[in-house]
Design a protein around this nucleic acid. Sequence first.
RNA 1: GCGAGCGUGCUGAAAUUGGUAAACAGACAGGACUUAAAAUCCUGCGGGUGGCAACACCCUUGUGGGUUCAAGUCCCACCGCUCGCACCA
Length: 841
Amino acid sequence: MSYYNPQIIEKKWQKIWKDSKTYKSRVELSKKKFYVLEMFPYPSGKIHMGHLRNYTIGDVTARFYKLQNFNVMHPMGWDSFGMPAENAAIENDVDPKKWTEKNIANMKSQLMKIGLSLDWDRELSTCSDNYYKHQQKIFIDFFNNNLVYKKDSFVNWDPVDKTVLANEQVVDGKGWRSGAVVEKKKLSQWFLNISKFSDELLTDLESLTDWPEKVKLMQSNWIGLSKGAEVEFKISGLKSFIKVFTTRPETIFGASFLALSVEHPFASNFKDDKKFNTFKDTCLKFQENRKFDSEKLGFNTGLFAEHPFLKNIKIPVFFSNYVLINYGNGAVFGCPGHDERDYDFAKKYKLDIKCIIKDKQNELPYCDSQENDKLQNSSFLDNLKLSQAKVSIIDKIVKDELGSEITKFRLKDWGVSRQRYWGCPIPIIYREDGKVLPVDEDQLPIKLPEDTDFSFSGNPLDKHNDWKFTVCPQTGLKAIRETDTLDTFFDSSWYFLRFCSSDSKNIPFTDKEINYWMPVDHYIGGIEHAILHLLYSRFFSRALRECGYKVPKEPFLKLITQGMVCHETFKTKDGKWVEPSKVFFENDSYWMKYREGNISVTKGRSEKMSKSKKNVVNPDSIISEYGADTARLFMISDSPPERDLEWSIDGIKATRKYLDKIFAFLKEKLRFTQSFKNQENLTNEEKKILDFTNGVVDSFTNDIKNYRFNKAVAKLRELSNTLIKSKVKRDLFDYSWSTYLRLIYVIIPHFSQELASLTGLKGLMEDLKWPTSNKKTFDDGLAQIVVQINGKKKFLINVAFGITKEKLVETIKKNSANDDINNKKIKNIIYVPNKLINFVL
RNA sequence: GCGAGCGUGCUGAAAUUGGUAAACAGACAGGACUUAAAAUCCUGCGGGUGGCAACACCCUUGUGGGUUCAAGUCCCACCGCUCGCACCA
């Protein structure tokens, strides 16, 4: 009979924690704060393994720092606007709000069962007007500070979701959620002025010393700085100038054509040209579906541009598909000698290919230049090194007022308009006199209407006349509400601030609370948010500061990006995925039961759990069958957090077995204690056990601090293995096992608390704080030394600690069974004190 | 194409940052208990050679080279995998 019954004890302790508000957090100025945050979930209705892993990692952290005497805040909320709710409304005729609330209730009860040390009093939900009224205020602040603006623009239109996508939400030309091929559509959109902070967002990455390098690099690439110059080319016979951006202005004497994007403003000169319009359509299609190097297309305008420095040189002007409107100026000068793309283009259209770098005539296109390369055929730049030439050409460009030195960023402003119902309404009205005005703050929140018809395609708000038509309260003039809603990334860009003041009624958050709790000390979530969510949040902090809010520039001090939860996959011969639980192994191959017989299946690689690959395991059923503590312990013992975790039901079973064993053993034998006083008269074995226990306290503490949870667990298992086998006196037994329980508490709190309570602890483990080690209590005066010959380990020897090299060599020679040391000539002896000695023969 | 990271037993991994490779687990195999199975416990588990045996010796961190008394760890080249960006001017 198993003594260990997680179903009962987990419920019991969860109730006690809840009733006694154990995890409630308040500002306490006298205590050091610690803000632990896991990325809040979208309430899909069910938690998945990724959640379980994420929140377990966060919970171990939160409990650990709490016991280390920090004032810990560990909140949870819901990223609850977004398309699944609206899709449910369209498909199943349910109210998005009710649908969402039901999902939240469901997921919350699942989260409760994990036993997380969350402060539920701070719970927030982005779709509640209690949250989004503050968000609307923030939007208005942004509006009044020129951080948001409206512009007509071609947008990425997702024909399946019928909405606009941000550039970042387009992956390989397809919608990030729907997977549909994205189309271009012109709409008037709200944009956040994130590019205003490009420079800052980039350089401040350096200050994020506790972020993974990988994430910083991804952000840095995304912001995409390039330094160069803008140069103007005059079009012969016209008054027009074409401004060109280049990172290699020193190659300007190699220019033999101009290439413009078909979306460049200059194209308006050809808007009635049928041939051009056909060409433009072709180019846009090419650009949308590009995979690798597509063919370069050219449209010769018949016009020529004047070279800024060579008055008698005229170069042809083309439109081409290889020049993109959304980078630089949408126009380049072609330098085919030293740029592969320009080279391809020039070859195709038989344009001049000039070599302007010395001795490279036979290596064209010569693109990656060397430090010592010098220029030729370049007028006043001849014989200069490229780096020198760059400086002098920029000087000249500036002096002659032909252009300027300039830095460009890849980062574009963030389009936040969504033609959707289930999002935060944008608090703007369009008055009949043409004015675009923010809603008065005393009218906030602008709530979503609840009687909405979802039977049309497109945006339901746009069709909801009662809601849409309004009047301006100041003037009484008729007005129309903005019917677009905000991108949900807007919602998640400041929720961590709101957690600090979740009950603040009139303002989003208070200075006092922000000042105390922010920044988030440890932020834990998936690597998939490395760019978007984190970059937007960093932008929000800066934008809010411009509006007068006192928030830190960088919201997240330390970032932990957890890996995915993976599971094996199986496929039938005709390529259908098969649930791993249906597969069995027999006669050296894998089979699945199918009607009467078995069919053979092949094992694929382990992949991220996903419905489509049928390799999902539901954490809720694992928790009800094996217990939350088993699930928690398994989630962190196999792999370090940032790496992918391989799901294994055998691992779960074995973890449960281990807990069963320890529970039954300790329940009978342990008397819980916090101290061990009687240190005299210990046997050598007992001394070792005591030292080992203390050593584990240190290593475990360090491993948890460094997010090496798997090592922390290994060390604890080593301790329990040792303790089970050894016979030590009662006091020491109690002390070592109690220490074990106090450490493992942060991982499996119900288990540990229950055992401690059963064996004598009155009260909560929470109140005991973290165990301290007494460092090395005993010293047997010996050092174990590795004896090597030519760098290879031969044997170990125990000698007095601190022994000199000479004494050690003497001892080894006297006792050594290895003839080589005594007989062969020793060339050299390397001695690492108290550790290792190497005889070089 | 550019950038980053990784490569250790059958598997997940560890190795105090240049000093005993494989800690801790999982799978598997053998044994004990049992009429039997499950559960539980014990043992083995990188490869090779020799030995009845306890054991001894040798090899082993993707491949090849280098630095060093000493390399999984540092350097160079190659192979393979993963991720990010990609006609970015």
